[in-house]
């Protein structure tokens, strides 16, 4: 069965003059996933999200939303309907987004802001407003104007607005920025609830990597406008797993010693000369001794592994993947 994708971009590029804010990004977001989009400030996360949600026009590349692909050149698009909308623009009805800060009218209440959005989107049922305000925990705000809301309340209003048309795909740019720990937890719980209860696919960017790792099922790392890597949460866990890494001349002979001599089964061979052993880490010296005694030339042996934050920092910065500890 082929994988179902909500979003696929192909060599998406955005330039501002000579500066390439986003360069050749080909991202794949699977249906039902929470996709963590990670990058430093100015790496191109927001620009990428704006292009996907239709707020910015790409310079080059295509966007495929729910299987509908955009034209290559936006300024010369021909495949549009009577109202000047492309197929991708029509698919954007299925997207809810909160990019940068939530869009709102400060002089209106939360319900009034929601009413504007309800009318804009042509939603007939008025009850959607109290339901969503209840869902994000803003029922008690009543006549309080949004300009008097706390940062967390504004973010929750932004999420309520993004959820207005019951989207299949939610794009959230730094939704926990500026929130206190309890606000962060509230938003995290809300996202998990949306993903599990409403089966909404979520693309979320954040600086708070530890928080992101609590919700994301897949990750994309962007650096200087380029998507440098995409991987699953399991893969990440695997990469960060603490292990004994040995560099030997003959991995087959070493594997035989590990299995037959020491009874070790939990290991892998990622490279022609590398073996990673995931059990009996406290007996590293004995393992080394057994390998040498068995006639294997042991070139290197070390304990490696990182926490998620450290791993991400290595990816985002200049460090190499799997730095020794």
């Amino acid at each position: 069965m082929s994988m179902e994708y909500v979003l696929r971009t192909h060599n998406l590029t955005k330039t501002f003059g000579k500066h390439k804010a986003v360069y050749n990004v080909s991202m794949n977001v699977r249906k039902g996933d929470i996709y963590g989009f990670i990058g430093k400030n100015g790496a191109g996360k927001t620009t990428f999200m704006k292009m996907v949600s239709g707020l910015a026009n790409p310079t080059e590349g295509t966007i495929e939303l729910f299987g509908e692909k955009s034209e290559q050149m936006y300024s010369k698009r021909k495949n549009i309907d009577l109202f000047g909308r492309s197929k991708v623009e029509l698919q954007r009805k299925r997207i809810g987004c909160l990019i940068e800060e939530p869009g709102y009218y400060p002089g209106m209440t939360a319900a009034e802001n929601m009413e504007v959005v309800r009318r804009n989107l042509g939603i007939a049922e008025k009850k959607v407003i109290p339901e969503l305000l209840h869902f994000v925990g803003l029922t008690d705000t009543k006549r309080k104007k949004v300009k008097y809301f706390s940062m967390g309340m504004k973010q929750r209003l932004g999420i309520a607005i993004a959820l207005m048309r019951n989207p299949d795909f939610l794009i959230l740019d730094e939704p926990i920025n500026g929130l206190d720990p309890s606000g962060i937890k509230e938003i995290r719980d809300l996202l998990i609830k949306l993903n599990r209860e409403r089966q909404i696919t979520i693309l979320i960017s954040s600086h708070i990597l530890g928080e992101l790792s609590k919700v994301a099922a897949r990750y994309g790392i962007i650096r200087d406008g380029s998507l440098i890597e995409e991987f699953d949460a399991e893969e990440l866990e695997d990469r960060c797993k603490r292990c004994q890494k040995v560099v030997v001349d003959d991995t087959a002979a070493a594997a035989r010693i590990l299995e037959e001599g020491l009874g070790i089964r939990n290991y892998d061979v990622p490279d022609r000369s590398v073996i990673r052993i995931f059990e009996r880490l406290e007996e590293a010296a004995d393992i080394n001794k057994a390998l040498i005694t068995g006639g294997v030339a042991l070139q290197e042996s070390m304990l490696v592994g990182q926490d998620l934050e450290g791993y991400f920092m290595d990816l985002l910065g200049d460090g190499a993947i799997g730095t020794k500890r």
């Binding site: 949600s53 109202f83 000047g84 623009e89 997207i95 709102y104 009218y105």
Partner: peptide
């Protein structure tokens, strides 16, 4: 310009309407 001030225009752009409309 009020539409841009607090970003409210983002709630309608990219929501299935053409920019012309």
């Amino acid at each position: 310009i009020g539409e841009y001030g607090k970003g409210a225009v983002k709630n309608v752009v990219g929501k299935g309407y053409s920019r012309n409309s």
